[in-house]
Design a binder for these strands. Structure first.
Lengths: 73, 73
DNA sequence: CTGTAGACTGGCGTCGACG
DNA sequence: CCGTCGACGCCAGTCTACA
């Protein structure tokens, strides 16, 4: 499956666990709200710097973010 | 430390373990050779799609690529 | 609150050339 | 084999607006 979709789904999964709205997470990660929508829906080819900000806003490490079955091979 | 540097160093580390030149890895990942140089030296904010191609060329999973101490928090 | 659309700027990623 | 430079097209990421 497309890496963009995997990343988007993982972000959404973790966001919901934190009980945040897309807008709240977008603000916390300092990215645009409409861009956040596109990223979660696998429509944008995100860069590692923006991904890092989102991951930090999700209060998780890079290692743990990718430590999920979708990324295991 | 900068995420771009961490990613670059991890790529270089794994590339050397495989005994590949930058050019050989670049060809295998289907990216430009000069871009590969910049990425390893932490000068480019790489996207997840290109990073995926490099990771696959390094014969490792996304999870294992980030399962290294630099990415542990 | 989420999604979509359109317009815009900067930088990703390519390429040829040279040391 | 690796690093750097300059040129260039295209898309990442922003923003406003509407449902």
């Amino acid at each position: 499956m497309d890496i963009k979709l995997k990343v988007g789904q993982r972000i959404k999964e973790l966001r919901l666990q934190l009980g945040l709205s897309q807008e709240a997470l977008a603000n916390k990660a300092d990215v645009d709200r409409t861009y956040m929508t596109d990223v979660e829906n696998g429509r944008r080819n995100i860069s590692v710097e923006v991904l890092e900000r989102i991951i930090m806003a999700l209060e998780i490490s890079y290692a743990d973010f990718f430590n999920a079955k979708e990324f295991m091979k």
